[in-house]
Amino acid sequence: KNALMQLNEIKPGLQYTLLSQTGPVHAPLFVMSVEVNGQVFEGSGPTKKKAKLHAAEKALR
């Protein structure tokens, strides 16, 4: 199970927000955030999926 699945089991129905998309078309950088218990966690990556995963990993720490 990855961090997204684990976080969804603990806190179902979380909303992930796209904060920014920067970089060239062939190498974009997405920044996504998720709010858990009033705290906002951000993650970035080359795809929205990876950015969401990194945000979930930070939220689980």
Rank of each mutant, 00 (worst) to 15 (best):
K1D: 15
K1F: 13
K1G: 12
K1C: 13
N2E: 09
N2P: 04
N2C: 09
N2Y: 03
N2M: 05
A3Y: 15
A3V: 10
A3R: 07
A3G: 04
A3H: 10
A3C: 06
A3M: 13
A3W: 15
L4W: 11
L4I: 15
L4R: 07
M5W: 14
M5Q: 13
M5H: 14
M5G: 09
M5L: 13
M5K: 15
Q6T: 13
Q6H: 08
Q6W: 12
Q6F: 08
Q6P: 00
L7K: 00
L7R: 02
L7E: 01
L7C: 02
L7V: 03
L7S: 03
L7D: 03
E9I: 15
E9L: 14
I10H: 11
K11H: 15
K11Y: 12
K11N: 11
K11S: 13
P12H: 05
P12Y: 02
P12E: 04
P12A: 08
G13E: 09
G13D: 15
G13F: 04
G13K: 13
G13N: 08
G13I: 02
L14I: 15
L14E: 01
L14Q: 06
Q15Y: 06
Q15R: 14
Q15A: 12
Q15M: 08
Y16W: 15
Y16I: 03
T17E: 11
T17W: 06
T17F: 07
T17A: 06
T17M: 11
L18V: 08
L18Y: 05
L18G: 03
L18T: 07
L19A: 11
S20Y: 09
S20W: 05
S20L: 08
Q21K: 12
Q21L: 08
Q21T: 12
T22S: 10
T22D: 09
G23E: 04
G23A: 04
G23K: 05
P24L: 08
P24T: 14
P24H: 05
V25Q: 15
V25S: 14
V25E: 13
V25I: 08
H26E: 15
H26R: 09
H26D: 15
A27E: 13
P28C: 05
F30W: 13
F30C: 07
F30D: 04
F30P: 02
V31Q: 15
V31E: 09
V31M: 13
M32V: 11
M32Y: 15
M32D: 01
S33M: 11
V34Q: 01
V34F: 02
E35T: 09
V36M: 07
V36Q: 00
N37W: 06
N37A: 08
N37C: 08
G38W: 01
G38R: 04
G38Q: 06
Q39A: 09
Q39H: 10
Q39R: 09
Q39D: 12
Q39T: 13
V40Q: 12
V40D: 06
V40R: 12
V40P: 05
V40M: 12
V40T: 11
F41L: 06
F41S: 06
F41Y: 10
F41N: 02
E42I: 14
E42H: 10
E42N: 06
E42A: 10
G43D: 01
G43F: 00
S44Y: 13
G45A: 05
G45Q: 02
P46Q: 10
P46T: 12
P46M: 10
T47K: 05
T47A: 02
T47V: 01
T47Q: 02
T47W: 00
T47L: 01
K48M: 13
K48V: 11
K49F: 15
K49R: 14
K49E: 15
K49W: 14
K50G: 08
K50L: 13
K50I: 11
K50E: 15
A51V: 01
A51L: 00
K52A: 07
K52G: 03
K52F: 01
L53F: 05
H54Q: 15
H54N: 13
H54K: 14
A55R: 00
A55H: 00
A56S: 04
E57A: 08
E57Q: 09
E57G: 07
K58M: 13
K58H: 09
A59W: 03
L60D: 02
L60Y: 05
L60V: 09
L60G: 01
R61K: 14
R61M: 14
R61L: 15
